[in-house]
């Protein structure tokens, strides 16, 4: 049953007062590397927020691994196999880097919350898994450092590590290199490229040249609508896409 999509959105719509941010989005996400591109204000992040459950749609339906999750919040979607990062780093600022990831691992474990005499830090299974994830994303900074004191690059890596903790089927990455210097961008993209081998990755990215080579599929958004979607070469040769995207970028 490899043909079944992980995520299936049908006529998903989000209106903010008079503005329609996402207009009847119908899209299937399979186990492949999908990049969502489009100019500022095209509705990319709103789409992400709809997929993750951070926003609830005005209309439409969303299925995750065959379950209707339209009315479910982000805390429930994680348990159905969807996880995300944020464009603006969104961490547990004062807590150590290790604890940031450990919390995410604990969230999908079955620790007994009613036992207040258990020590959260003595669950070796969770600690081991946390260490694995930090190793996986190449987090080489001191793991006792508070998240807020990390450099931008490590904050981005920590974002990704937290999102990986639940071992999601689909991983949503919202501009993971936003605000990074060029060399750090490459470092993060290397990690993203590695992840794409194991997870269905959906990436929001501004820079067309970067995603063109990495992605199996491009979704081009414009004014809240999907202008075109398909393999990168096909999509990018669509004159409509060229016009909308280039105009959006240059303006």
């Amino acid at each position: 049953m490899t043909d079944d999509p992980i995520v299936r959105c049908t006529d998903l719509r989000k209106e903010f007062a008079a503005v329609t941010a996402v207009d009847d989005l119908t899209i299937d996400i399979h186990d492949e590397f999908t990049s969502v591109i489009g100019p500022n204000g095209a509705g990319k992040t709103t789409t992400f927020n709809l997929l993750a459950g951070t926003l609830s749609p005005t209309a439409g339906r969303m299925e995750l691994n065959g379950t209707d999750v339209t009315a479910k919040g982000p805390e429930s979607r994680v348990h159905h196999g969807l996880s995300r990062t944020y464009q603006i780093t969104n961490l547990f600022d004062e807590l150590p880097a290790f604890e940031n990831v450990r919390l995410a691992v604990q969230a999908v474990s079955d620790v007994p919350y009613a036992n207040v005499f258990a020590d959260a830090l003595s669950d070796q299974e969770i600690n081991r898994r946390t260490t694995e994830i930090l190793d996986l994303v190449g987090f080489e900074e001191d793991r006792t450092t508070a998240a807020e004191n990390l450099s931008q690059g490590y904050k981005r890596l920590l974002e990704i590590a937290i999102a990986l903790a639940p071992e999601p089927d689909v991983l949503l990455l919202d501009e993971p290199t936003a605000g990074l210097a060029v060399d750090k961008k490459e470092l993060v993209f290397d990690v993203v490229g590695d992840l794409a081998d194991e997870y269905a990755v959906v990436l929001i990215e501004h820079k067309l040249d970067v995603v063109r080579d990495m992605s199996d599929r491009l979704v081009v958004m414009h004014n809240g609508q999907v202008l075109d979607s398909g393999p990168p070469e096909e999509t990018l040769s669509n004159p409509e896409v060229q016009e909308a995207y280039l105009r959006g970028v240059t303006s």
Binding site: A52, T54, G73, P74, E75, V78, H79, S83, R84, Y86, N90, L91, F92, D93, E94, L95, E99, R102, L103, A104, Q106, A107, V108, V111, P112, Y113, A114, N115, V116, F117, A118, D119, A120, L121, D123, I162, A165, P166
Partner: peptide, 22 residues
């Protein structure tokens, strides 16, 4: 110091993210 207490501190630090991790 229990798993419950650690979640409370996650909520203190960043409630949105605490929700997002499940």
């Amino acid at each position: 110091r229990s798993p419950f207490g650690h979640v409370l501190q996650a909520i203190r630090e960043n409630e949105e993210r605490a929700r997002a991790v499940g």
